[in-house]
């Protein structure tokens, strides 16, 4: 099984476990913070589908500042020139990440030299070529990565995030 396959394997630890995905979804609903919608609410938040850029806007190994899922959630798009986990586009090399450190909310710096995100607050480092895996650091999450899609025109859309963003108890506020 390739590592990319594992990205969709959300069941490795389901939020509410001991049941299949559908059942897990129902269980989540019972503890969502929106009681009025509990009867019909979705298991997960509804992410906006936002156009972040066009593939032509990206230059190899140069971060392009974006925000997702709203203007208060800064992130980057990166074209890494080789197939990477979560990568989209013709070369499966385009990825997007939040730029807010999931440890204490400091702004991460991109290190083009080794393609990592680095936190000046407490020295955490995340590997953009390994699905945002924390190389070393104090965050208890790997770096939230965007679920991306590229359409026929080369427009890059974000459609979701795979971890909770720092500073919000719901990724979509």
């Amino acid at each position: 099984m390739s590592r990319c396959d594992r990205m969709v394997d959300v069941g490795r630890r389901r939020f509410m476990s001991g049941a299949g995905l559908a059942a897990a979804g129902v269980a989540v609903t019972s503890i969502t913070p929106i009681p009025a919608q509990a009867a019909t609410g979705a298991a997960r938040v509804d992410y906006p589908v936002n156009r972040l850029a066009n593939v032509r806007d990206l230059k190899l190994n140069e971060p392009l500042n974006v925000s997702y899922p709203d203007a208060n959630a800064p992130g980057v798009l990166l074209k890494l020139g080789k197939l990477v986990p979560g990568g989209v586009g013709a070369e499966s090399d385009i990825v997007g990440f939040t730029t807010i450190c999931p440890h204490k909310g400091f702004t991460l710096n991109y290190g083009a030299g080794d393609r990592t995100m680095n936190c000046p607050g407490h020295y955490s480092r995340f590997d953009c070529e390994a699905g945002g895996q924390q190389i070393w650091g104090q965050a208890t999450q790997n770096l939230p990565q965007y679920v991306l899609r590229v359409d026929d025109k080369g427009d890059i859309y974000a459609e979701g995030v795979d971890e909770l963003l720092y500073g919000r108890l719901s990724n979509v506020l």
């Binding site: 990319c4 990205m7 959300v10 979560g86 790997n142 990565q145 979701g160 108890l169 979509v172």
Partner: peptide, 13 residues
């Protein structure tokens, strides 16, 4: 791919 919890919201205290 790095381990991700796929959690996008948490109950509020």
């Amino acid at each position: 791919m790095a381990y991700k919890r796929q959690i996008d919201r948490l109950p509020i205290i």
